[in-house]
Simulated assay, not measured.
Amino acid sequence: MGIAIGLFVAIVGVILFVAGRIGGGRGDRWVAYLYLAPVVLMLAVGLIYPAGRTIWQSFFDAAGTSFVGIDNYHTIFTSPDQLTVLRNTVLWVVVTPFVATAVGLLYAVLVDKARLEAFAKALIFLPMSISFVGASIIWKFVYEYRPDQPGVRQIGLLNQLIVWAGGTPQQWLVESPWNTLFLIAVMIWIQAGFAMTVLSAAIKAIPDDVVEAARLDGVSPVGMFRYVTLPSIRPAVVVVLTTIGIGTLKVFDIVRTMTGGQFNTSVVANEFYSQSFRSGNEGLGAALAVLLFVLVIPIVVYNVRQLRAAEAS
């Protein structure tokens, strides 16, 4: 650590020393190049090179020695196990961003200008301060199952509530595909606070004269939300949706901690880890990593375009 910090200070010192001795109009351009050089170097070493090597490795076999072309990609889209992984990933991406954003928007509207607004927002945002692993352990206790036998007490909150209601406890994380939905609930619980914070700030940024004009026109609360609030915060909604969507595509901790990918709950990120480091299939693991990268790109591009459109308007 000390060597790394010292090297960083030395490089910055050299850049500042050289930049201070360059003057003139053309010198400003070289100063910019000097400041960009370390960033470009770190991106090349830490991002571009690993990405290129992963793409190249995805065309080799499990041992990474024999070239097999697109066989690994063919396996991803034809193997029953990998198709289940893709189905689960699609389910995560379709459900999580929209439900988390909807819940966050509902929170933002309900607590806006309430008496205990600050306390309510802090309480709702609290799950965001918990790591994914910590949240997974909490919810694993919520879903905990014990056999329904005399003298056996349920320690899982959900099953205990069912027992109190006269029902039979269930193994929530075993039955597919419902177990995937129970895992998704954890992500929604975490991300709803993020969505609420961003959307609440967007709602407060709506000009007061617009709100007052709508009220003078006799717009109902539902109409106010539909025709004033929602169109005004559309850029913020897009940012929240795409941000949660990207995070959902890369979800790993929740699945790994709660089920380990068993019982047909694995997703692309978890499968990439399992194939690369548990099963020793480097080729298939690299192909899954490339697939994950390809899936993230359209969301990032769309997000950037929406931000540019919002700035232009």
Rank of each mutant, 00 (worst) to 15 (best):
Gly2Ala: 15
Ile5Met: 10
Leu7Thr: 03
Arg21Pro: 02
Gly25Ala: 08
Arg26Val: 08
Arg26Thr: 04
Val31Asn: 09
Val31Ala: 06
Tyr33Trp: 13
Ala44Gln: 09
Gly52Gln: 12
Thr54Lys: 11
Ile55Val: 15
Ser66Thr: 08
Thr75Leu: 11
Asp81Gln: 15
Gln82Val: 00
Asn88Val: 06
Thr89Ala: 02
Val94Pro: 04
Val111Pro: 01
Ala122Phe: 14
Phe125Ser: 07
Pro127Gly: 05
Gly134Phe: 07
Ile137Leu: 15
Trp139Gln: 03
Lys140Asp: 07
Lys140Asn: 13
Gln154Trp: 11
Leu161Met: 15
Gly167Ile: 04
Pro169Leu: 06
Glu175Trp: 07
Ser176Val: 01
Thr180Met: 15
Leu183Pro: 03
Val186Thr: 12
Met187Arg: 04
Ala192Val: 03
Ala195Ile: 06
Ala195Val: 06
Thr197Phe: 14
Val198Gln: 07
Ala205Ile: 07
Ile206Gly: 10
Val219Trp: 02
Ser220Asn: 01
Val222Trp: 12
Val222Asp: 00
Thr229Ser: 03
Ser232Glu: 05
Arg234His: 11
Lys250His: 11
Val251Ala: 10
Met258Gly: 00
Gln262Asp: 12
Asn264Met: 13
Glu271Asp: 14
Gly280Val: 08
Ala287Tyr: 11
Val294Thr: 13
Pro298Gln: 11
